[in-house]
Design a protein around this nucleic acid. Structure first.
Lengths: 164, 164
DNA sequence: AAGTTTTCCTACCGCATTGGTAGGATTAGG
DNA sequence: CCTAATCCTACCAATGCGGTAGGAAAACTT
């Protein structure tokens, strides 16, 4: 159960675009160099973000990318779905209702097996965490890191472990 | 972001062992046939569960597997770790502190980048969901499914999608 | 009219992992 | 002994992932 680096790069890309959210677009080359990421790969990743309307592009010289909306209206839920496909803890969770055929043995006439019960719960946890995190929050966090005045911003961000 | 079917089979195996939690062990062959799962593959999976001390085995004829502890002391957190390795949303989260070298660019002198901030949050959500689900609960749920009296036990488990 | 900078698109490659099989050891019961 | 079971290892095909290569097409610059 792991996130791909595709998702990592994608989020870093979004954060970087969010930081320099002036009107002028930012070229991938600039981001690739400043972050030390492979440009060609980033191109393919940003294509996913564009397809999901999270990012706009301007072609040609002095072109580049910028956020399609303001950072506080972009949830990480959207970002991860755009980058990795649907956040489904099992392959059969992906919607194949057009087919009508149930590919897995989890569902039998509307019933739910114990495994699916668990997976749904996990999926809920993931989606919840992703949906309540906006890009604006990440951009903000990223900026605060440069100035280490705010002692431990992780404390507020992770009240999950402490609860249990 | 997906669970492997290895994890699915493993959990189904545990549930099945939990249901027939008499003293007599259950053979994999019996489970494989009743669940329609490939026996040879199950053998490899149950080995993971045994290595994690979730399951005990008796060899020879009339042998088989049984839970090493009572089902209400086994959390899905343990099960998934045993089956899939550590639940880490990024490859670099796995503990390689013995090496000393930081394999990813997320950590720089104790600082945390925005990406890791997000991943930690997600990981918290997953771990939380897994840790608060015991095998006993799944076994119980699985038994209740046979008798569809309890209308929708999922309602409590999935208040997430409806919110948005 | 070049030439340059960018986005865009597609194909390819090596590698790791996954789901699954095969074949055989070892242990215990009948 | 034979059989039923756990164990163990090697192997296989398929998939996906991270990454590269080689261009087009679009827009700005000179």
């Amino acid at each position: 159960m792991i996130f791909t680096t595709k998702a990592e790069y994608g989020v870093r890309l979004l954060v970087e675009l969010g930081r320099q959210s002036s009107e002028s677009p930012v070229s991938l080359k600039a981001i690739a160099e400043s972050e030390g990421l492979p440009l060609a790969y980033l191109e393919r990743i940003v294509a996913l973000l564009k397809r999901a309307d999270l990012v706009e592009s301007t072609r040609g010289a002095h072109g580049g990318y910028r956020l399609a909306r303001s950072a506080d209206t972009i949830t990480m839920d959207e970002a991860v779905v755009a980058l990795e496909g649907s956040v489904a803890p099992m392959a059969c969770f992906v919607d194949d209702s057009d087919d009508g055929r149930v590919l897995c043995s989890h569902v039998e006439d509307g019933e739910t097996c114990a495994t699916k019960f668990l997976w749904l719960r996990v999926q809920g946890g993931v989606n919840d965490a992703l949906r309540r995190t906006t890009l604006a929050e990440l951009v903000d966090f990223s900026s605060r890191q440069a100035v280490p005045a705010g002692a431990s911003p992780l404390g507020a961000a992770l009240p999950i472990h402490t609860a249990a």
